[in-house]
Design a protein around this nucleic acid. Structure first.
Lengths: 188, 188
DNA sequence: ACAGAATGTCTAGCGGTGCTAGGATCGGCT
DNA sequence: AGCCGATCCTAGCACCGCTAGACATTCTGT
């Protein structure tokens, strides 16, 4: 039975190979350069192989996004734990969030802008997404009945800052100032 | 010279006809259904005619977005003026903003999500966009040195609420509650 | 009024997209 | 050894944004 096991392993490896290739291509040349042909060439397989692993291009983007949610959650967690005082946790998490969005624009786009197959707000939300959200929640006092609400609004504000400044609809500088303002107003 | 005038008028009419057709098609079937072929069929001209009016598809999306910015600014202005007391102005404007985003999702997408030819944050920002932003600024005390900053953060938060709830990344209900929270925290 | 210029519009097609059917090839099992 | 299923590729479909070049129409100057 070792043969079939090896095959399963190879399959899993190739699955990740495709996802990584898509992500690298997107990060270096943008998502509009990620076509099934170029992706196939990159992984040195023919196009149909992609479709034996994913239902379609959107599913590949989705897979990249899922990886991204995991990494974002980890970044936020590290930021929160690195804060010296609880009061500084929210600020640290906010800064980490915007740093993630600006340093990995293609990844962020896959997670929040591009059309994907991801089902949100369903019975089982993606654990990675939930984990990232929980990092925001944890920045607020457990006794605060509005901590979930606070987290939602803070997350929304950060997302808005990320995409509006990223597209130049608000000046990209002064982000630090906006974080300051947001944190001081939102912290309980 | 009336002949050339008539031609110019016909050209302008057809220009708007194309923009309106694109918008209607997007609002009924989504932007992925807006192709140059379908659009040409809709306005009962051949494809190349579109290119004699616009540089490309992105320019058509841009034209729709520009119309949208004008309408959004007007909605915000009406909301602000309809508020009985100055303290309620910000809340009214925020509610109007989210109503606009949820009632005209395709239009909102053209303005803030889709790739367009629009140049933001340049020397001459689109007046309609500036007008919308100014409605937010006007909700804050003129003596407040941070009123521009406040407006940027509020706008960002609203945009985040719009797209995150629209895509189900946060529960679409409870928007009213989030507005309440945002307004009470942000109002000076 | 009429020839020539200018303008407008269309048909046809280019290179690219996501995606898939069908056949060839390779591996493991009896 | 020979079969059989899994795996992979070639070729192609329908569609995309966009454009060259031919055709028709309208305007202009004599």
């Amino acid at each position: 039975m070792s043969a079939t096991e090896r095959r399963a392993r190879e399959r899993a490896d190739r699955h990740q190979l495709i996802v990584n290739a898509a992500r690298e291509l997107a990060e270096t040349e943008g998502w509009e350069a990620v076509t099934t042909r170029r992706l196939a060439e990159r992984v040195e397989y023919s196009q149909p192989v992609l479709y034996s692993h994913f239902n379609g291009k959107d599913a590949i983007v989705t897979a990249v996004a899922v990886d991204g949610f995991g990494e974002l959650a980890e970044q936020l967690r590290r930021a929160r734990h690195s804060a010296a005082k609880p009061k500084q946790a929210l600020r640290a998490v906010c800064r980490a969030y915007l740093r993630f969005a600006t340093e990995r624009p293609a990844l962020y786009q896959a997670m929040f802008v591009l059309p994907t197959d991801l089902q949100f707000a369903s019975e089982q939300t993606l654990p990675q997404l939930r984990a990232g959200f929980d990092e925001f929640v944890s920045c607020f006092d457990p006794g605060n009945e509005q901590r979930e609400l606070s987290a939602e609004v803070v997350w929304s504000a950060l997302h808005g800052l990320a995409v509006l400044s990223g597209s130049g609809r608000i000046p990209p500088e002064d982000q630090e100032q906006r974080i300051d303002f947001l944190v001081t107003r939102m912290a309980d």
